[in-house]
Design a binder for these strands. Structure first.
Lengths: 168, 168
DNA sequence: TCATACTTTCAGTATTTTTTGAAAATTCAA
DNA sequence: TTGAATTTTCAAAAAATACTGAAAGTATGA
């Protein structure tokens, strides 16, 4: 397989992968492209490579920057902005986990706390079942939250070797 | 908060949560409803509670059954089918992980294997950068794959206590 | 300060995904 | 068998989501 084709396949399937995880296709594709570029590239490079509009490109680059996955680079003597992705995959994973934890897990846990305060006779079958489900999800969620916090702080080597010990 | 309201909030936010993780809103809502019902309920119960059409209900129940999250129950003397969700949250998580690993992680790893066979001079900056990225993602992906395999086989108590040791 | 190169915004449009509902298929008791 | 109850299918419609492109906004250097 030629490099050009391989790059295209990588970008396209990274995009499809993203859509299965609640990340929009273009954002994932731009990220994929930046991941395989060693040097910073411009918005126009991205537009051309992925065949997308200026507005779309701009919005999704901004989002990638918000997530901390991409940085703006000013090259001396150049008027245009350049963009560069974080290449350390372990750092990438940690940034994504951090962001999604904040956006999704934490609000969910807050809601579950509130839902546990439901009024009603705890001997009522429906109340009991509701509280049990909410309670169990909360328990697992809190554990996941702690685990992810530690992971976010962890060094890759430490994390991997710890996992190796358990999941031999 | 009254039970009715709490149930609604739970169902609605579980649905929203699902959409952020590539699971469709209705499927997640039906799942949420079944999770908080101690006894099996019918398709009509679900349609009424969630205000959705027969076709939509049917398709999403089927999908939940495919995932192993819900089972069809035949009650003696009843013509209609009833549905019941797996209530053990740890089992639920394992079923979801298993399914998504099969659908998404495994095909991605296969693709990465193929992409590593790209032709071209490995001293070429573009080839080098491509291979490095693909290689690193593959390495992490394989580790995740193994870890998830072990997790799928694990007992909750064992898993939680192992995690506790590391992520104290 | 001005002109130009570049970036950002967002209303309107296009695309993708989900939902509906009626018809077809199936099941089952009599 | 028959036919009423129930489930399944799927084309068409609706809803949600993403994208475009032109206009407005900013920065830069002469």
């Amino acid at each position: 397989m030629k490099l050009t084709e391989a790059r295209q396949q990588f970008i396209s399937s990274w995009g499809a992968f993203g859509t299965h995880w609640g990340i929009n296709r273009t954002m994932a594709q731009i990220h994929a492209l930046l991941l395989i570029c060693s040097d910073p590239i411009t918005q126009d490079d991205i537009m051309e490579e992925l065949n997308i509009s200026r507005g779309n490109t701009n919005m999704n680059i901004r989002e990638l920057i918000n997530w901390g996955l991409v940085e703006r680079v000013i090259l001396p003597g150049e008027r245009k902005e350049f963009f560069l992705a974080e290449k350390d995959i372990w750092k990438v994973v940690k940034l994504i986990v951090k962001e999604r934890k904040k956006r999704e897990l934490e609000p969910m846990l807050q809601l579950l706390d509130k839902l546990e305060e439901v009024e009603g006779d705890k001997r009522d079958k429906n109340v009991k079942s509701f509280l049990e489900t909410v309670g169990n999800i909360k328990k697992l969620g809190k554990q996941a939250d702690k685990t992810l916090d530690t992971m976010i702080k962890a060094e890759e080597s430490w994390f991997i070797s710890s996992l190796m010990k358990i999941f031999k």
